[in-house]
Design a protein around this nucleic acid. Structure first.
Lengths: 196, 196
DNA sequence: ATTATTCTGAAACGATCGCTACAGAATAAT
DNA sequence: ATTATTCTGTAGCGATCGTTTCAGAATAAT
């Protein structure tokens, strides 16, 4: 019973992600969002709750599609050390060809909404923790395999790599050139040593 | 001739800095700002132009008082290598005891306003460039003095240190603990080597 | 003391904000 | 075909946004 939705909820959510991503939370009005999603505001509220709930859903969708997908794919296809290198290379590649300088929704949100909303702050912290966990897993595995020297422990080095990724994302948002982003990453990669 | 201002323009600007710093540009309403500055909105517009101009002035004041002051002070008192170490230590110290998790106004702005306002974007890029220039000067001087090995060139390593600082600032904004921030910096400092 | 100029507090401007009410359209079950 | 339920477009709610207006207070120069 009842009328069916005339739009695809997931496609519309993707449009919301793009809107929040490009403009940020505060600067994305519900009218902006509804227009980008191709629906009326009544449908938006009916389907997603309110603006904040829509943002939480958009954040989760972004994390699944952009971060978790990347980590899972890279871990499946590369040895630990190469996984770290590939991850950084992808971040740089994505950031370098980012005409609108959207950067990373998670990082953008971390400095914007997350600081005014405790629950969203916890979400962002958890998402960033997943990135660090990836680095840590990879570093520990690489050390076991003898791919890296293991002079610096994985807990510390994983935090360093997370910091480097965040730094790259910030600089990318300011429209930095690829060469600069590569320079940020290069010394971190050098820490992995020259072992294959 | 004419009536005198009943408030101190610099003190009021400091209050505006705090407001923008804690809440961001969009989330700081003119009423918020005026109240924090202890003046009416008419005085605000009379003295500073409009909200955007006030923000530009606040950004400049923050850069002068927080960034340039720190760089000048540290460069005057420390040898190059120690200058880099001290700079990072101060950033971590500041970030660790930051009850409101305000982070860094420049970084916060980089991801917020700067992406929607080309002129402010250029300002932020220039300010971040000053931080990198400090690292580059220090690295080159340290290499000349034999304080660091100079295996990695200063241009690349200065970008890395800038990235690390930005990463620390992002994590600090999410309320990260001091231990995590130290872990981000530690491997970068290790790159400087153990030379005195 | 008068004049010219600037500053200030209060009020309000039109625009936009997030959000909702509501009538009608669309569908599933009867 | 009728009924029950849900969705959608429109229109508009009260609140707040950035900004301006304006009368009056304060000061410097005459």
């Amino acid at each position: 019973m009842s009328r069916l939705k005339a739009f695809d909820e997931d496609r519309a959510l993707d449009a919301a992600v793009d809107c929040f991503w490009a403009r940020g939370y505060e600067a994305s009005s519900v009218r902006d969002l509804a227009e980008a999603m191709g629906i009326g505001s009544a449908s938006l509220y009916n389907a997603y709750g309110d603006k904040r709930e829509l943002f939480v859903l958009a954040l989760e969708r972004y994390a699944n599609r952009s971060m978790r997908e990347r980590i899972a794919r890279i871990e499946a296809r590369h040895a630990p050390k190469q996984a770290i290198e590939t991850f950084l290379a992808e971040i740089i590649e994505r950031s370098a060809r980012d005409p609108d300088s959207k950067g990373c929704l998670l990082v953008n949100s971390a400095l914007d909404v997350a600081s005014r909303d405790a629950e969203i702050g916890r979400l962002v912290t958890a998402y960033l923790g997943e990135i660090r966990a990836f680095f840590r897993r990879s570093l520990e595995a690489a050390a076991r395999d003898g791919q890296v020297s293991g002079q610096i422990d994985a807990a510390t080095l994983s935090a360093h790599f997370l910091g480097v990724v965040l730094g790259i994302r910030v600089l990318a948002r300011t429209g930095a050139k690829r060469r600069l982003l590569e320079s940020v990453a290069e010394p971190a990669l050098a820490l992995l040593g020259s072992g294959q």
